[in-house]
Amino acid sequence: MAKVGWLKKITQAMELPPDALRPVPRIILSGNEEVLIGGHTVLLAYTPEFLSVSRAGLRICIQGSGLIILAMDKLGICVGGVIDSISFER
């Protein structure tokens, strides 16, 4: 944790993107139809109304309807459907 804090300070000091040195998830949201979470994520729960993934200690929760995992591999996960909200938990 101390290492992460130290890296965070460096990235902030050098004005680098947050995910340049740390495993911060990069999330690309296309309207409310598709969300792409980059990096190796761990799928925690999945129903058509709720999907939860974990990435580097951060839990990302997606709520919506008709959610479907369009693709999933080591590079990321792509979720389609009607997305109502995305929330984060530590």
Binding site: H40, T41, T47, I68, M72, D73
Partner: peptide
């Protein structure tokens, strides 16, 4: 998760 870990590409995951 194991599939992703072993670089097995899966798609069209439907509940």
């Amino acid at each position: 998760n194991l599939c992703a870990q072993h670089e097995i590409h899966v798609w069209g995951i439907e509940y």
